[in-house]
């Protein structure tokens, strides 16, 4: 996608001091938390990392099965081509759209400043 994801470095979410060493090679909680703008302290990161490793370990058991000749499936049921006709339907009214926004500005959703 032609989109940048750079936030201002001082917007308050980025945590530079998190120890990334205590992670699995696959999923680094601190890194993903940073991407997701979740503010986790080091203790939480370590805890979640351990819990996540337990989950990943459990899923890894599937590797013990002999899966030769079995195609990976992305869905449980053999159902395909669920399409919709290209017909316009009314959306939400403007008031309702912005009613739940934490912050708005004119007709737009207001978010922390993002720069390219």
């Amino acid at each position: 996608m032609g989109v940048s994801c750079e936030w201002l470095p001082n917007h308050g979410y980025r945590r530079e001091g998190v120890d990334l060493a205590n992670t699995t090679a696959d999923i680094r909680v601190a890194y993903v938390a940073n991407l997701a703008r979740l503010e986790l302290d080091e203790a939480s990161c370590a805890l979640f990392q351990r819990q996540l490793e337990t989950v990943v370990e459990y899923v890894r058991q599937i590797g013990e099965l002999n899966l030769d000749g079995i195609e990976p499936t992305s869905h449980g049921q053999p159902v395909y081509n669920v399409f919709r006709a290209d017909e316009v339907r009314p959306g939400l009214s403007h008031d309702r759209v912005l009613a739940n926004a934490p912050a708005k500005m004119g007709e737009e959703f207001k978010v922390p400043r993002i720069v390219e």
Partner: peptide
């Protein structure tokens, strides 16, 4: 005429957040 996964119109130039 419509978006990829919903029936909202794709018309160009409408006021913000009116086709959602």
């Amino acid at each position: 005429n419509t978006k990829m996964f919903c029936g909202c119109t794709t018309a160009y130039g409408a006021p913000p957040n009116t086709q959602v």
